[in-house]
Amino acid sequence: MSDATATAAVRERSSDDQFVLRWSSREALKHAVLIVGALIVLLPFYVMLSYSFKSPSEIMTNTGGLIGLQEPFRDDYCVKLGNAAEDCMVTPVIYNYTTAFGKAPLLRYLFNGAVVTASIFFIQVLIALPCAYALAKLKWWGREFVFSMVLFCLLIPVHAIALPLYIMLSKLGLTNSYAALVIPWTISVFGIFLMRQFFMTVPDDLIDAARMDGMNEFAIIWKVMLPTAVPALLAFAIFSVVAHWNDYFWPRIVITGNRELFTPPLGLREFKGDADGDNFGPMMATATIIVTPLIVAFLIAQRRFIEGITLSGMK
């Protein structure tokens, strides 16, 4: 707790030029609120991580602290298959994670997730950058109207149009395919809006200079605007990838039979409501595996991500 008190105090320069820590109840209150908020956000993750380490009995009785005692327990499923009870003793953490990968083709799901999110993001950028450029830097009749339509589209929740979209895709015979997972998301109005706001801050001189140098408008988009927009693009990448990597709703609708096309969140269902009841250990291990790539990516890109959000990429 000493850390908390240190941050809750204000650093001040005293007259003899030394840093002293001074108690400030205002700052303390602020930090107290922030700490409570952080705990509420982190608690589900704590439970997820903790359950992924524990044996079923520890989960049921809620004992064992964070990582459990790691005492071997008997795997009933293994016994059922006719093995001797001694051979079926397993360590909880190993059992949970191997089951996660073994019982469901989790690697396949992760691969699907990567393909789908990467394709979605790639096509979104392909469409959003030219749109944003036209909205921010070109003058044409109806531009303000189109931009207001973009803003309007930001207000439409995806769930409202899910059914028409599904019907459309099924009439085209595209359900149960990567296309069904990717196509509905390729035009991101949020992406267009975000990039347009960023492009507004790029000086017109830069574009004029590129025109004088002989670039056409598309060359300007990909060779001048894209490189300067990397921070904003990264911010958009996080929004887009997080949303579609974690999406459970849409894959659940359009992927009806083929397990080969499941995305990681669908993989969680494998451990839900089996005949032998819920299997929380492997399920939480799966969840941990699913969120890890995102958290790692965020930590790596954290600084540029915040740069992009504040749209201060260029002077």
Binding site: P203, D205, D208, D213, P227, T228
Partner: peptide, 20 residues
């Protein structure tokens, strides 16, 4: 004739160098 093909060169107030 488009700007690039007039074979003129322009120097801008903000220099307009490609930052990347």
């Amino acid at each position: 004739v488009r700007a690039a093909d007039r074979n003129l060169a322009m120097v801008f107030q903000s220099y307009a160098l490609y930052p990347h």
